[in-house]
Structure formats: C-alpha cells, structure tokens
Simulated assay, not measured.
Amino acid sequence: MTSVTQRIAQIKQPYGGYLKPKDFDEIIFDDGIKLYPEENINAGLVGTAVDYLTRYTMGTLADQAFDISLFGASIIDEKENADFLLSRVRGLDDLSIRSACKLVGYDVCARVGIIGYKNADDIHADEKTVINIRTMVNRSLAFFEQHGPIIKEGFTFELGYTPTVTSGDGDYLTEDTLWDFKVSKNKPTTGHTLQLLMYYILGIRSIHSEFHDVKKLGIYNPRFNKAYLHEISKIDSSLINKVAADVVGVEANII
C-alpha cells in the first residue's frame, strides 16, 4: 500500500522538480492581520485543525470533517474520548478550537500508525495558537467565498489508483481548479506541486467526471494568505504523461 505522499518520498525528481514551483503565479491576499510568530503545538496539528475546521465551518458535518481523526481514535480504542471532543467542536470559539487540536492528534494512528501517536489529551493549544488557527480558518472561508463554490472536498480517487499508488485524498475542487490546502511555514515545494499533479492524474482516471473540467492547479496557504496557480494548458503533455507513467504507474498516456 503506497499513498501519494509516500510515493513522492520514494522517487527522485529532476532538478527543479517535475512541476516547478516558480512557474506558479502567486496571488497575495491582505486582511491586515499578522499571525503570532510562534505556536505551542506541532505545525502539522495546527495545519490539520485549520483544514478540518474550515471544512466544518463551510457546512460539512463534524463527523465527516473529522472522519480521519475518529477512525484513528477507533484504532486505539479511544473512540469515546474522540466523540466527546467532537461534541465540543461547535464553531470557532476557544473551546471548539482547543478540542479540535486534541481531536486531530488521533489522525496519526490512521495515516502513519500507532507508533507515532502521542496522548491527544496532552495537546494544549495556548491563546496565541488558538488565535492563529481562528485567523487562518477565517482567511480560508474568505478565500473560498471568492474562489468557490466548492463542488468536492476531502475526495478520493475511486478507480483512479494504480498498483504503484494505492491511496491518497485531495482537498478541494472548484468548478475549474484542483486546490491543495497547505498551512506550511514554507513556500510551495517540488513535493507539493508534484502532489497536485498526481492528484490531477488520479482524478482524470477516476470515476469523478468533474476532473475533466479542471483547467488549473492551485495551492492555497492561509498562513501566508497566498494562493499559487498554474494553468494545465501551460504544462507540456509529455511531462504529464511522464509523471503518469514513471510516478503514478499508469500504463497508457493520460493526455
């Protein structure tokens, strides 16, 4: 079993990456708010909490927005505690955000395995971290209000997977753009851009016909409040087919 991110870690990209981050157009949004420079919990937890809270506040049911967290908790027989934490997630108040930070601590059990798990109840987001998360969720809501509507979120690629890449889930799909959601403290990397291209290839192969309408690949980072966009028409078809064959493991040409 190999996920999209695991596959990216296995391969060596050409110099500058298959899909160069510098070729993405940068779009800057300015809400006049500066985040606190330090947060007291793991950056991965912060990013996941922002992601799931964004989905929840946009209307996804709480148990669907946090489904990976709940599944991870069930693996270690802590579903009851996870359900309790979920019941406290009701919006973007302090208690909801702190409960979400604890709840996403179970994700590692589902994504990596129990070897990486640390007690979720030991996760205590401080005031500055809570404020940063709230700001980033609100930025995300404003972004998708402008660039939506979202037609799919948290999707998988049924019938799109291959013997080489057997799992992976995308973030957001709007009418013409496949979006990946990053809360990284760094600019997009070659791994991030390859991940997007792999999602596009898997989407084209999948049962979801909406991917055939995708014209752009995008990354949105609410930490920077920036988006990065690349038109698919500007990507050489030979490059897409090479990634499909060499990275994803597709036998026939995609385009």
Score class of each variant (00 low, 15 high):
residue 206 S to E: 04
residue 80 E to H: 05
residue 66 F to G: 06
residue 209 S to Q: 12
residue 11 I to D: 04
residue 122 D to T: 06
residue 22 K to Q: 14
residue 153 E to Q: 15
residue 56 Y to C: 09
residue 224 F to Y: 15
residue 159 L to W: 08
residue 4 V to Y: 07
residue 211 F to S: 03
residue 172 Y to V: 15
residue 1 M to R: 12
residue 246 D to Q: 14
residue 40 N to G: 02
residue 131 I to L: 12
residue 202 L to E: 04
residue 155 F to K: 01
residue 34 K to M: 09
residue 49 A to C: 11
residue 157 F to K: 04
residue 180 D to Y: 06
residue 153 E to L: 11
residue 136 M to S: 10
residue 16 G to Y: 13
residue 114 I to L: 00
residue 81 N to D: 14
residue 213 D to G: 05
residue 164 T to V: 13
residue 52 Y to T: 04
residue 122 D to G: 11
residue 252 A to V: 12
residue 162 T to W: 05
residue 136 M to H: 10
residue 144 F to L: 10
residue 164 T to P: 00
residue 41 I to D: 08
residue 189 T to C: 08
residue 59 G to E: 03
residue 150 I to M: 14
residue 149 P to E: 08
residue 184 S to A: 13
residue 112 V to L: 08
residue 98 R to G: 02
residue 40 N to I: 01
residue 94 D to E: 15
residue 195 Q to P: 07
residue 26 E to G: 01
residue 34 K to P: 00
residue 18 Y to M: 05
residue 11 I to S: 07
residue 80 E to L: 05
residue 84 F to V: 09
residue 196 L to G: 11
residue 183 V to D: 11
residue 40 N to F: 02
residue 245 A to G: 00
residue 112 V to N: 06
residue 148 G to Q: 09
residue 193 T to G: 10
residue 42 N to I: 03
residue 183 V to W: 00
residue 117 Y to H: 12
residue 108 V to R: 05
residue 21 P to C: 08
residue 204 I to G: 02
residue 219 I to R: 05
residue 90 R to L: 15
residue 216 K to Y: 12
residue 237 S to L: 01
residue 238 S to R: 13
residue 133 I to W: 07
residue 241 N to D: 15
residue 244 A to D: 03
residue 146 Q to A: 13
residue 160 G to K: 04
residue 108 V to S: 00
residue 237 S to E: 09
residue 110 A to Y: 12
residue 75 I to T: 03
residue 19 L to V: 15
residue 255 I to V: 13
residue 197 L to Y: 02
residue 112 V to K: 13
residue 70 L to N: 11
residue 11 I to Q: 10
residue 173 L to A: 05
residue 44 G to N: 13
residue 145 E to F: 03
residue 138 N to L: 13
residue 43 A to R: 11
residue 63 D to G: 03
residue 211 F to G: 02
residue 44 G to L: 10
residue 127 E to N: 10
residue 142 A to K: 15
residue 157 F to W: 04
residue 72 G to L: 05
residue 119 N to F: 06
residue 4 V to P: 02
residue 116 G to C: 08
residue 10 Q to H: 09
residue 54 T to F: 15
residue 225 N to R: 02
residue 189 T to Y: 01
residue 128 K to F: 14
residue 130 V to M: 06
residue 131 I to V: 14
residue 135 T to D: 01
residue 128 K to V: 04
residue 66 F to C: 07
residue 225 N to W: 10
residue 99 S to E: 03
residue 241 N to L: 07
residue 211 F to Q: 03
residue 239 L to I: 15
residue 150 I to F: 01
residue 160 G to N: 10
residue 188 P to G: 11
residue 187 K to V: 11
residue 139 R to D: 08
residue 212 H to S: 08
residue 114 I to D: 07
residue 107 D to F: 00
residue 150 I to D: 02
residue 144 F to V: 13
residue 36 Y to C: 10
residue 142 A to T: 09
residue 29 F to M: 05
residue 109 C to Q: 08
residue 122 D to M: 11
residue 206 S to Q: 09
residue 121 D to R: 09
residue 220 Y to R: 10
residue 8 I to S: 07
